[in-house]
């Protein structure tokens, strides 16, 4: 009797164990839809793109001629590659530096309990949710040569009209500025959250020790904001290095190629110059460049975080 009871209990527990492990093992079924999406739309095209980069395909012929690494040799000897890489770095680094400086300044202003706090935060943040392409067009109204808002001011002061968007460097600066204007709200919010998480005790103690406001900022706020800075660097750098929409609406990459970024250059190679093989090569180059820069800067900031 006793034996039979133990046996049946064993059997039961074994069964339930099996059932349990079965249902747990089958959990992997749940990530199949996601895996399909990632494989079809990202991983496979990435590999296929590498294959296209080894051809001189024009984008529409039925056949692709295998040309080995000749597109890569072309990439490194093409002066436009370096122009475009330099522009991309200017967009990425320029946006990051300006957006963080301005975002921190806004955050320091808006952590004070002033009447204008909520409305200012809303107005600064509003452009974040607007299409970057349309934001570019709105700024086009200001910088346009004919009847542009900025040229109206110049004329009112008796100065000559200027073609801001046609001037190299100036147009790059304008594109960076528009990007900063649009996304500074995001940096600001990350910094506000960072500042609000710093314990009041630090500031109280510093006040008792007679530290000035600037000393408090330099010795307490900034060092403790390093994690928030890491986040901001990642967002702004990736955003700036991938910049596309604003360039299309403000200059279209021109005049010539002077304001082209890697993204817009690749687009123009493929759709306007029928140079698909080379466009794919630029795509691979873009992945490597963005990956290297982002990883290096994140590793650097993480080390800083540990030091702080």
């Amino acid at each position: 009797m006793q034996k039979a009871y133990e046996f049946s209990r064993k059997l039961k527990s074994k069964k339930s164990e099996k059932m349990r492990s079965n249902s747990e093992n089958s959990l992997w079924v749940m990530f199949i839809p996601a895996l399909l999406f990632i494989s079809v739309f990202i991983i496979f095209p990435f590999i296929y793109g590498f294959r296209i980069s080894l051809t001189n395909w024009d984008g529409f012929s039925q056949t692709m001629n295998f040309t080995g690494i000749s597109q890569y040799i072309r990439l490194f000897s093409d002066p436009t590659t370096w122009l475009v890489t330099r522009n991309t770095l200017l967009y990425g680094v320029g946006s990051t530096v300006l957006q963080m400086a301005l975002g921190l300044a806004y955050a320091l202003l808006l952590v004070n309990s002033i009447k204008m706090r909520v409305i200012t935060r809303t107005i600064i943040y509003l452009p974040v949710i607007i299409s970057p392409l349309i934001m570019g067009y709105i700024w086009y109204f200001i910088f346009a040569y004919d009847n542009g808002a900025l040229n109206d001011i110049l004329l009112a002061f008796g100065l000559e009209k200027s073609n801001f968007l046609g001037h190299p460097y100036v147009n790059i600066f304008i594109i960076v500025m528009v990007n900063v204007y649009q996304f500074v709200g995001l940096s600001m919010i990350v910094f506000i959250a960072g500042i609000q998480s710093i314990s009041r005790d630090f500031f109280e103690a510093a006040k008792i020790d007679g530290a000035s406001r600037f000393q408090q900022l330099k010795n307490i706020t900034i060092p403790l904001l390093v994690p928030a800075m890491t986040i901001n660097v990642i967002i702004n750098l990736i955003g700036g290095l991938k910049l596309f929409d604003v360039i299309i609406s403000l200059t279209g990459g021109g005049p010539g190629d002077v304001s082209q970024s890697l993204s817009t250059f690749m687009y123009s190679l493929y759709f306007e110059r029928q140079d698909a093989g080379y466009a794919a090569t630029q795509g691979i180059f873009m992945v490597i460049l963005i990956f290297t820069i982002t990883v290096c800067s994140v590793l650097y900031l993480r080390r800083k975080e540990i030091e702080a």
Partner: peptide
């Protein structure tokens, strides 16, 4: 990890597909 691949970089193969 695939977040490091900028979506636009695979434009040529993806468009063809």
């Amino acid at each position: 990890g695939v977040m490091v691949i900028p979506p636009l970089s695979v434009l040529v193969p993806l468009y063809q597909m």
